[in-house]
Amino acid sequence: MRITKYEHAALRIDEAGRTLIIDPGSFTTPLDDLAAVVAVVITHEHPDHWNASHLDRILRAAPGVPVFSTAGVATSAADHEITVVAPGDEVTVDGFTLRFFGGQHAVIHESMPQIENLGVLVNDELYYPGDSYAVPEGVEVNTLAAPIGAPWLKIGEAMDFVLAVAPRRCFGTHDMTLSGVGLTMHRQRLQWATEQGGGTFFELDPTQSLDV
């Protein structure tokens, strides 16, 4: 499996000639080489995790592929066909097995309503929690895409999340809100947390890949 990180929260997973796209949002530059896409996962409705132009671009290249997300995204993306999934669901599509966890977006502020959020485990290898610290209970996570910067994120809580998951491999995502200095600092903290469980932390910049 090859995992490619793009700007902010967007991930591309390639396995046996097939491609899965996760969270292509407004902070991500247009994706290309999309003909092999077999599915899209959108963790929640915030625009930094999906927008219509990205979705339309993917669907033009790979017509009819399923888009898995929350009921909130189905409402926001009413012009698109969204397959609604929930924590506890498992689906298999063309070589990818997707297991969903979580349920709620992390709290930004009490004045803002909480929305649905999905964590997703891909082929029992890669776990990405979306905008949450949802730990996939009972799962040994080999590779973790850990949120590293956000309006809702406190670095100590992000470190506790990595400590709780104890992945073999970890890299930071959700990072476009950070300066270069802030990104370096937060990577150092998540590297420390990863190493406490015997894992390895990888610094992935946009378009860099990790083979697992």
Rank of each mutant, 00 (worst) to 15 (best):
M1V: 14
M1K: 13
M1G: 15
E7T: 11
A10P: 01
L11F: 02
R12H: 03
R12V: 12
I13D: 06
E15Q: 10
A16M: 04
R18Q: 09
T19P: 00
I21P: 09
I22V: 14
P24F: 05
F27G: 03
F27A: 12
F27P: 00
F27Y: 14
F27N: 13
T28G: 05
D32Y: 12
L34P: 01
L34M: 06
A35E: 15
A36S: 14
A36F: 01
V37M: 10
V37E: 09
V37T: 15
A39V: 07
T43L: 01
E45I: 05
N51E: 05
A52Y: 03
S53Q: 09
S53E: 14
H54A: 06
D56W: 06
D56C: 07
D56E: 15
D56S: 15
R60G: 12
A62G: 09
G64W: 08
G64Q: 08
S69L: 08
T70H: 10
T70K: 10
G72Q: 10
G72P: 03
T75G: 07
T75R: 15
A77T: 01
A78S: 15
V84M: 10
G88F: 02
V91A: 00
V91E: 00
V91T: 01
G102D: 07
G102E: 06
G103C: 03
Q104G: 04
Q104M: 11
A106V: 09
V107T: 15
I108G: 02
H109W: 13
E110W: 13
E110F: 14
M112K: 15
P113W: 06
P113N: 11
Q114P: 07
I115A: 11
I115S: 10
E116K: 03
G119K: 02
V122L: 03
N123R: 13
E125I: 07
Y127L: 00
P129C: 04
G130M: 09
A134K: 02
A134H: 03
V135C: 03
E137C: 03
V139K: 00
E140F: 06
E140V: 11
V141T: 07
V141R: 01
N142R: 14
L144V: 04
A146M: 01
P147W: 12
I148K: 07
G149L: 00
G149H: 10
G149A: 10
G149P: 02
A150W: 05
K154V: 12
K154T: 08
G156V: 09
E157V: 02
A158G: 13
D160T: 04
F161Q: 02
L163S: 09
A164Y: 02
P167F: 06
F171W: 09
F171H: 10
F171M: 12
H174R: 03
L178Q: 13
L178D: 11
S179L: 09
S179E: 08
G182T: 12
G182M: 14
H186Q: 11
Q188D: 13
L190P: 08
A193V: 07
T194E: 02
Q196E: 11
G198P: 06
T200K: 14
F201A: 08
F202N: 03
F202M: 11
L204T: 05
P206I: 02
P206W: 02
S209C: 02
D211L: 07
